[in-house]
């Protein structure tokens, strides 16, 4: 129970910021399995009976309107919340026993960006590189700025950035430790067309690098063509899944109409 003996604080390979796998510093897995997971807040059913699998080298989209439970699902997978019932497995592991090792393998882009507005982009990136145990944080931060296309603005405070620029820094912050599992909450918010295209390229690059990517969005047009699997959520329930989905918008409309009809019937049934 002592706070000091959790298995974190293992050194990372300096040059690339990758974990030194020889030490087994962080959990490695190539599959995320969500098995009949429910989460309640008091009497509010945020999620009920969700099951899906996300594989390495694939992008899974959590789609649905606001309040469907997408963010809660991401928080559960990120180990920030514990499920009320059901299991989330990372490869063969459960979240409980491998807290820090698991967190070292997860990168999260939150809806609230997780950046200190008073600090410059570079300082933000270096700070988080340090927290993730990357010994050469400076190089990692410089490379991340390069990738974000903000190498020349790196020393300006984040508060002076536009929403799109912040979003790009936040994404690189989430990816600075080259996570195995990437969780993105509405990553397209505030991005212009060029940035959206760049984000698409970045995600494809991660997919090619065999990362497991879970992306929550309500923006179907931007997710179009990017997803390998789509999970549709509504009112905390899974109403449809599709592999290699095309024509998302039509599918979404269809799925939501059917869900409306279904819930309408059950309501008249009592």
């Amino acid at each position: 129970m002592s706070p000091f003996d959790s298995p974190q604080d293992k050194p990372f390979d300096a040059a690339r910021g990758k974990p030194s796998t020889a030490l087994g510093a962080r959990a490695d897995f190539d599959q995320l399995t969500v098995d009949d997971v429910s989460r309640h807040f008091g009497r509010r059913r945020a999620l009920s009976h969700i099951s899906f699998r996300a594989d390495g080298g694939a992008i899974l989209g959590l789609l649905g309107p606001n309040g469907a439970g997408k963010s809660t699902m991401l928080a559960l997978v990120a180990t920030l919340l514990r499920p009320t019932s059901g299991r989330i497995r990372y490869g063969e592991r459960d979240a409980g026993a491998h807290g820090a090792a698991l967190r070292a393998a997860i990168g999260v882009l939150g809806h609230d960006l997780f950046l200190y507005p008073e600090l410059s982009a570079r300082e933000n990136l270096e700070f988080f590189a340090g927290l993730y145990g990357i010994s050469d944080g400076r190089t990692a931060a410089a490379r991340a700025l390069e990738t974000a296309g903000l190498a020349d603005r790196g020393d300006d405070p984040v508060s002076s950035f536009s929403r799109g620029m912040r979003q790009r820094v936040a994404l690189e912050r989430a990816l600075i430790h080259q996570p195995r599992l990437v969780l993105l909450d509405e990553p397209f918010t505030g991005l212009d067309d060029a940035s959206t295209a760049a984000l698409g390229l970045r995600l494809n690059g991660l997919r090619a690098g065999a990362a497991i990517i879970v992306l929550a969005t309500h923006d179907l047009d931007l997710a179009e063509g990017l997803l390998d699997r789509a999970v549709f959520l509504r009112d905390g329930r899974m109403i449809h899944t599709a592999d290699r989905p095309g024509a998302l918008r039509a599918m979404y409309r269809d799925v939501m109409t059917r869900a409306n009809v279904a819930s309408g019937f059950s309501r008249t049934d009592g």
């Binding site: 309640h40 009920s48 059950s266």
Partner: peptide, 9 residues
């Protein structure tokens, strides 16, 4: 609460 939550809609 548990009963309420176990109702299916």
């Amino acid at each position: 609460d548990a009963l309420y939550l176990s109702m299916d809609s």
